[in-house]
Amino acid sequence: MASAWPGLAQRERNFDRYLDLEARYDRRPSQWVEPLVPWGAGRVQLIEIPAPDETHDNIVAFWVSNTPLRAGERRELRYRTHTFGAEPAAAAPARVIRTRQGWGGVPGDPSPPPRSRRHFMVDFAGGELENLSPDQPVEAELTASRGEIHHLQTRPLPDGRGWRASFRLDPDGQQSSDLRLRLRLRDEVISETWNHVWHPDERR
Rank of each mutant, 00 (worst) to 15 (best):
P114W: 04
R75T: 07
G127L: 00
W163C: 09
E188W: 08
H56M: 12
A71M: 04
L36V: 14
W194L: 02
L181G: 02
E192M: 07
E139K: 00
P113W: 02
R203E: 02
H119E: 09
H82K: 10
W163G: 07
W63G: 00
E188Q: 03
P35W: 05
L8N: 11
V197P: 00
A2F: 11
L181D: 06
A4C: 12
G173R: 13
N14E: 15
P38L: 07
Q153M: 10
A125F: 00
E87L: 15
R28F: 09
R180N: 04
I149S: 01
F124W: 04
E12Q: 15
H151N: 10
R95P: 10
L8K: 13
D172R: 04
S30Y: 03
R118F: 01
E48I: 06
G102W: 12
P38A: 10
S111N: 14
L157K: 05
H196N: 03
V138Q: 00
D135L: 09
P6D: 14
T55D: 05
R95I: 12
P137V: 04
L157V: 11
P50I: 05
Q10V: 13
P110W: 14
A41K: 09
V197Y: 02
P110M: 11
R13L: 14
R27S: 12
G40N: 10
H199P: 01
S111W: 12
R13A: 15
W198C: 00
E73M: 03
E202T: 03
P200H: 01
N131I: 06
P156L: 10
R17E: 15
R100D: 15
Q153T: 10
L19P: 06
I149C: 02
W194P: 02
P134M: 08
A23Y: 04
E34I: 12
V189H: 01
D172P: 07
F120R: 02
V44W: 13
H82W: 11
E148W: 07
L77I: 07
P200S: 05
R168C: 02
I49Q: 01
A94D: 15
A51N: 05
P35Y: 13
R117I: 09
F167E: 05
M1I: 09
L21W: 13
T193Y: 02
W39C: 07
S3H: 14
R43V: 07
D57L: 00
R117W: 11
Q31V: 09
R17T: 15
L169V: 09
P156H: 06
S177K: 03
G126V: 08
P171H: 04
R11K: 15
R146S: 04
A92E: 15
Y25Q: 13
G104H: 09
R17A: 15
G102Q: 12
D53A: 12
P50W: 08
I149E: 00
W5H: 14
L46I: 01
L169F: 02
R70I: 05
P112Y: 03
V138P: 03
Q136I: 01
D109R: 11
N14K: 13
Y25K: 11
